[in-house]
């Protein structure tokens, strides 16, 4: 009797392992689930270089090419979309981006991005703020904002 149980346990374990591998390879193959978005009419050409984009989100670059101010909007640190955007698009770890903001804010050498609570709020802000940049889930095909592709 104990033998049969252990047999089932093994089979279950194998299945679990297989599904885990499938899940992992699935996520490896899957495209990014998040995109950078800007306010319509922002003077920026798409695709943008990754360096330029990370300079914007790390708050080092503060103006668009015409000299107008860049308004950066992000979601809270512990929001999964924030983590996806950092890792997939900027290719940065979220804690490093936070460290860059802290260094600016607490040494008086820069400002932090505006933190919003939901993707809905993000969508509204980007749509209504000239010079705004942020990110949204890819499936959210909205005509109120312009998608910014990355080189």
């Amino acid at each position: 009797m104990p033998k049969i149980i252990s047999c089932y346990t093994y089979r279950f374990r194998n299945m679990a392992l297989l599904s885990l591998i499938l899940l992992f390879s699935g996520s490896m193959m899957a495209e990014e689930n998040v995109v950078a978005v800007v306010h319509y009419g922002t003077p920026v050409t798409t695709p943008i270089s990754r360096i330029r984009l990370s300079s914007i989100f790390s708050m080092r670059l503060t103006t668009w090419s015409d000299g107008s101010a860049i308004k950066v909007f992000v979601l809270p640190d512990d929001n999964p979309l924030n983590s996806s955007f950092c890792k997939q698009i900027l290719k940065l770890f979220p804690h490093q981006l936070r460290y860059a903001w802290d260094r600016l804010v607490y040494s008086g050498t820069g400002q932090a991005p505006v933190i919003l609570s939901s993707t809905q709020e993000m969508e509204n802000k980007i749509a209504n703020t000239p010079g705004a940049i942020g990110y949204l889930p890819k499936e959210k095909k909205d005509d109120n904002v312009a998608i910014l592709l990355v080189e």
Binding site: G67, V105, G108, Q111
Partner: peptide, 11 residues
């Protein structure tokens, strides 16, 4: 702390 950016490149 407080910060003010009256024009984009000035803080």
């Amino acid at each position: 702390n407080g910060s003010w950016s009256p024009i984009p490149n000035l803080l």
